[in-house]
Structure formats: C-alpha cells, structure tokens
Amino acid sequence: MTAIVQRAGFLTSVQDLGRTGFRQLGVSTSGALDSFALRVANLLVGNDEGAAGLEITLGGLQLRFGDERIVAWCGGEFDVQIGSRALPAGHVGQLQSGDGLKFRRAQFGCRCWLAISGGIDVPVVLGSRSTDLRANFGGLEGRTLRGGGVVPLARRPGSLPPPTPISSWAGPHDWVSPAKRYPVLRFIRGVDWSRFDDATMKRFTISEFSVSPDSDRMGVRLEGPELKRKHETDLISEAVAPGTIQVPPSGKPILLLGDCQTIGGYPKIAHVITVDLAVAAQLRAGDGVRFSEVSLEDAHCLLLERERDLDRFRIGVSLQRS
C-alpha cells in the first residue's frame, strides 16, 4: 500500500490541517498552506477532511501507485495526468495498480494539494502528520519527498470508486482553483498599524508589491514602497500568526505563512484574513499583489459563509457517492 516517488518535484511534503496544542513550546502550525484546499480534495476522494495529503510546490512530482486509489487535487494551474488522461483541478480520478500520476510545472499559482483515498500513512507526531520542515519532524521523517522513495498509504475507505476513470463533475471553481492573476488580499489592521506614518498606511493599501524569490513556507517576502514607522523603537516580542504581515527594519513587509515562527518582535502592520490565505499560498516569485482593508466582522462573516457552503458541498459529494 504505497506509491513510489519517481520524481519528487521542486518541493513536495506530507501535510494535514496542521499541528495545534504546542504553540506555547514554540511549535509552529505547519500543515497545508491552504488547508481549505486540502479539506476539499479530501472530501472529493471520500477521506476525512483532516487526512494527510501532499503539498506540491511548483510541480514536477511523479508517482506510481501500487494499488487502486481515488485521487483529487486543488490549487494553482497545473497540468496533471493519470497516464495520458488529464485530471483537471477538483475532478476525481481513479488509478489502477501500476498507474502513474504526473504533475507538470505550474502555469501559474505556486502550490497544489493532492488527496489520495485512504490518506498518507505516516506516524502522528505531536498530534499531526504534517511535516515541520524547519524543525525536521513529522511527515516523512521530517523532510520533503525524495525521488526513489515511497509514500506509505493507509487502507482505502469503504466508499465506492467513481464509475468513470475521471469524474465529469468537479468541486466549485473558486475552491479548487484559488490562484488569481491579479491577487488582492483582504486584511484587517494589525496591532501596530498606528505606529506607521500616514503616508505608509496609504502606500500599503494603494501600492502593488512584488513577491521576492526568497519566499518560502515560512513567509512571502514582498518588495515595494518602503513601509516606515513614526519611531524606530524596539517592540517586545509577542505572538505572530499565519497571515500576519510584519515589517522588519528594512521596510519590506513579510506575509507569514504556516511554517512561521510562533513569536516575533517586528511591528505587525496587518493580518491577511483566513479565507484569503488560500490566495496567498499561490503567490510565487515575481507575482504582483495588492492589499485591501476589511473589518474583522467581515472577515468572520466570509469565513462562516465559506464554512456553510462547505457543509452543503459535503452533502452534495456524499450524494454523488451513493
């Protein structure tokens, strides 16, 4: 019950919905950078929403399956094939033993999440199967996939396979393909918003920033107009969260993602709202991105609305299976 890694791709790791409960000891969330995409992919293949899948960065992954599986993926614009058949985002594909699954280089967007029926069978470490790539634990011995290695798969759930090799139906477009050509990330003001000067506040909301190449799962580093504080006083370190935009002395903001540290001392100008982390996870070097302010109440309403839609989708998927 394994898949053989023929090519590991640029950076592929085992992730679930992330690690919680050890933040007071400095343990990061890790997990799928777009946990919603992984939940949707898992629902499509009949898994628990929290089953471990693969996070594929920029593509290049090639797997060969040792048994029959159902797969689905959500994320950026990738060409994915089962053998010679295309598997578009959000569709459900059936693999026979010996079949290959190939992710070509992303046309745009940065990452995608692959769910395999049964889920990936790696040990639960500190409550999660996610790979912590900074502290090197969880997932496959704390590291990314390697060519020639295997991905252990758990027993398949009891649900019926789809009648066709590739389903004709798919998940909602916005969920399965969250990458945007002109991304605008909605934010709420950060704790230190008022520490920045008026021109900076304005600049932050009207300017386009570009994604720097040294971005990773810890954070998206942004280039653009310099963000200046009124006074360069040292702040006392406190918690940061995925979505936090902090501004180091260089004036170049960093949007923190799932692998970010738990505590930081840089001023926090803003926080990207949870529903837009799906878009943020698709940013790659050279992309332009803008920010637009919303209220905390709106951020919560958007999240709750998406959750209600997912409840309905869950019912829809179970009807498709029955």
Binding site: T20, G21, F22, R23, Q24, I236, S237, E238, A239, A241, T262, I263, T274, H300, L303, L304, E307
Partner: peptide, 21 residues
Amino acid sequence: VVELAPAYTSVAVFFDPVAVL
C-alpha cells in the same frame, strides 16, 4: 479556543471562529 502562546507581556489565544460561533 485552539491553543495559547504566552510571551513576555502577553498571552495569545488562537481560536476557530466557526467553533466560537
């Protein structure tokens, strides 16, 4: 409430808005 992160002068509370609601 999902988890907590104490620091020098503060305690951060991480929560799931859907569960709070």
